[in-house]
């Protein structure tokens, strides 16, 4: 009977939770230990030729003030912002179409196109972009066929941006669609009945009401992109560097673990500050709604 079942669950659930608490604590402990290791490496001196770091120092953070490193931080922030904005611009109409199309077939088709990249690994997706953007790739072949010559796309910021947008788009579309689903279609009809053209209705009613969803999706895309590694590594080919590529080069090419750790900590701090600012903005927007 249903009553017995629910009683059994009622007794079982806390026990199950207690059983899961131990592995959860162990995982948490492992993460905390890894983070702690990075923090303590960041504050130790690099001894050339040695894997073991030296004594306590702030030098790893002071050295980051160099224009070279500031440039990489800045480029990373710009790429993240660019990716977030482009994903939102491309994702909004897609999310809209998924919600408002009457045809189930069209809806399934758009969803499939949007979601499939999530099931491909990042490496597969990235190699796909190399094939598309390469000197004899799909796009250049198409350009040549139209007699428009060739364009340098692989190993450029634009190419990396395109690939990064492809990575974030599925999650942005899903988050935007979730936000847009809360907006009653009757509101758009009401705006039109009051004399607003569909465009005016969109900008005065639909868009302001979708701001929380836009901010949430944008924040996620931003944070997601900040930790991107394989995409800029392969599509950027060393010419377009983000923080994680720099950390990789310093850690595994120069074996300067302390400086790599310090860069990682700075990147983490930068992400935290940006996310805090964005979440503050989101809260203010939500209060106004």
């Amino acid at each position: 009977m249903a009553g017995e079942n629910s009683t059994a669950l009622g007794h079982g659930a806390p026990g199950l939770l207690r059983g899961l608490a131990l592995p959860a604590w162990l995982c948490g402990l492992a993460f905390a230990a890894a983070l702690l290791a990075i923090f303590q490496y960041a504050l130790r001196a690099h001894v050339p030729g040695e894997l073991e770091p030296g004594g306590f120092t702030f030098q790893n953070f002071v050295a980051q003030a160099h224009p070279l490193y500031i440039g990489v931080f800045w480029d990373t922030l710009l790429l993240c912002a660019g990716t977030a904005i482009l994903s939102l611009l491309a994702g909004y109409p897609l999310a809209w179409a998924i919600l408002r199309t009457r045809s189930r077939l069209a809806r399934s088709f758009i969803l499939a196109i949007v979601i499939t990249p999530l099931f491909l690994g990042e490496i597969v997706r990235t190699y796909g972009w190399i094939v598309v953007l390469g000197n004899s790739g799909f796009l250049n072949a198409a350009l040549a066929w139209f007699g428009l010559g060739r364009a340098e796309m692989l190993f450029t910021t634009g190419g990396v941006l395109a690939a990064l947008v492809h990575v974030t788009l599925p999650i942005v579309v899903i988050m935007l669609a979730a936000g847009l689903a809360h907006i009653e279609p009757e509101l758009e009809r009401a705006a039109q009945s009051l004399g607003a053209t569909p465009a005016r209705g969109f900008f005065t009613v639909t868009l302001p009401l979708s701001l929380p969803g836009i901010l949430a999706a944008g924040t996620t895309a931003f944070a997601w992109t900040f930790s991107a590694f394989a995409t800029p590594q392969l599509v950027g080919g060393g010419k377009v560097n983000m923080i994680s590529n720099l950390v990789y080069q310093l850690g595994f090419a120069s074996f300067n673990f302390p400086f790599a750790a310090a860069l990682a900590v700075s990147g983490l701090a930068l992400t935290a500050v940006t996310l805090a600012a964005l979440s503050l903005l989101t809260r203010r927007v939500e209060q106004r709604l």
Binding site: E186, L187, A190, S193, L194, G195, A196, P198
Partner: peptide
């Protein structure tokens, strides 16, 4: 719709 000069009260009121 937007050029018809109608006033409409919706079932859900549809207040913004």
């Amino acid at each position: 719709v937007w050029k018809r000069d109608i006033g409409m009260v919706f079932q859900s009121y549809a207040l913004f």
